[in-house]
C-alpha cells in the first residue's frame, strides 16, 4: 500500500516576546548612554568631601580641559606625575606653555558671547592628578582673556 508522506510543517518560533525584551533593553541603553562629546575628553575631575558643586546646566560656556599625559608602558592609564599632556578646548588641542593661544581662543569666544548679549563662563575641567603649578597658568590665561567667572568642575560623588 502506498503511504502518502506528509511534508513536515516548518517550525515557527514565536519571537514576539523576545522582540519585546530586546526593545526594552535597547530603550534602556539609549536612555542611559552618555555619549562622550569632543568637548569632554576622558579625565577624572577632583572629588571633594561634601561637594558644594552645582549641576552643570545650560549656560554660555566654554570648557577648558587639562588632560594628563598617558603612561608610556600602558597608554590606557594616565601618568601620575602631575604634568600636563595637553589642553583641550572643544576640538582644539593646545600644547603646554602655549597659553597665549588659549587666551586668544577664549577672547574670540567672549566676543561672540558679548555680541549675543550673554556672559561667557569658563569651565575649568582638570584631572585631579595635575599639580597646581600646571593649573594656575591656565587660570591666569583665562583671566587675561577678560573672563573672571571660572567654574571648577568636580565630581558630585566619591571617586572609586
Amino acid at each position: 500500500m502506498k503511504t502518502k508522506r506528509r511534508e513536515p510543517s516548518p517550525i515557527q518560533l514565536n519571537m514576539t516576546s523576545m522582540m519585546d525584551i530586546v526593545f526594552q533593553l535597547i530603550i534602556f541603553f539609549i536612555l542611559v548612554t552618555n555619549f562622550t562629546t569632543a568637548e569632554l575628553p576622558e579625565l577624572v575631575p577632583p572629588a571633594p568631601e561634601e561637594p558644594q558643586a552645582e549641576i552643570t546646566g545650560k549656560r554660555k560656556r566654554i570648557v577648558v580641559n587639562i588632560v594628563p599625559p598617558r603612561k608610556q608602558s600602558d597608554t590606557s592609564k594616565f601618568d601620575e606625575s602631575g604634568d600636563v599632556g595637553e589642553l583641550r578646548v572643544g576640538i582644539s588641542r593646545i600644547k603646554t606653555n602655549e597659553y597665549e593661544k588659549l587666551t586668544a581662543l577664549i577672547e574670540k569666544e567672549k566676543k561672540f558671547a558679548d555680541d549675543e548679549g550673554k556672559k561667557l563662563e569658563v569651565d575649568l575641567r582638570s584631572d585631579f592628578r595635575i599639580h597646581y603649578v600646571n593649573v594656575q597658568p591656565v587660570m591666569k590665561a583665562i583671566v587675561q582673556a577678560g573672563v573672571s567667572k571660572i567654574n571648577v568642575i568636580t565630581l558630585m560623588e566619591k571617586r572609586n
Binding site: I30, V32, A53, I55, M139, S148, K149, N151, T154, L155
Partner: peptide, 23 residues
C-alpha cells in the same frame, strides 16, 4: 543592542564650583 551595551558609559555626574576671580 550590542552597540548600546558597548558604548554605554555609566559616567559619574559632574558639577561646578563657581569662582569669581579678580581681573
Amino acid at each position: 543592542l550590542i552597540f548600546f551595551i558597548l558604548t554605554a558609559s555609566f559616567a559619574k555626574g559632574e558639577g561646578f564650583l563657581a569662582a569669581d576671580l579678580p581681573l
